[in-house]
């Protein structure tokens, strides 16, 4: 299991490829990539992501441990950036490896649902006009219910 919380950009293709080739007896790799979305009404100038140093990695490992307990996985990779990002920048990625695809798919979805509302990150969107903290959605919280 590998969790990285960083400001630096990452190369999704390279990370996915390294993750896949490092597996010895796995048959399925699922990856998720989250990028900075532009706003609907106006152009995003930048996005700031704040996190809780010290707690963040701990909270993510708690989620990856839970995924490893629930599904038969060979490996998990989570990379999440913080700091200032622009439209189309890569924010985060998740990769899961399993013998058969079902475990990798389900675990990746579980990881994303929990990372969204249980890992201590906060996004702020800035435009020419304003800077607004992204508000969590009710759906994000209810998405967790299906795993309980």
């Amino acid at each position: 299991m590998n969790v990285r919380v960083q400001t630096e950009a990452f190369d999704f293709g390279l990370e996915a490829n390294n993750f896949a080739t490092a597996q010895t007896d796995m048959g399925a790799i699922v990856t998720f990539l989250g990028i900075v979305r532009n706003l609907e009404e106006t152009n995003l100038s930048y996005m700031d992501i704040e996190h809780y140093p010290g707690m963040t990695e701990k909270a993510i490992y708690k989620i990856t441990d839970e995924a490893a307990n629930r599904w038969s996985l060979g490996d998990i990779l989570v990379i999440h950036r913080y700091g200032r990002l622009s439209t189309d920048d890569l924010i985060m990625m998740v990769a899961t490896a399993s013998k058969h695809r079902k475990d990798a798919f389900e675990a990746a979805e579980f990881l994303m649902d929990y990372l969204k509302s249980r890992a201590p990150f906060w996004k702020k969107e800035a435009t020419d006009q304003s800077q607004d903290w992204v508000v969590s959605k009710v759906e994000d919280e209810s998405a967790l219910k299906k795993w309980q």
């Binding site: 990372l115 969204k116 890992a119 992204v134 508000v135």
Partner: peptide, 8 residues
């Protein structure tokens, strides 16, 4: 103390 998280 913080608002609900918005990671991912």
């Amino acid at each position: 103390f913080f608002p609900p998280m918005t990671g991912g």
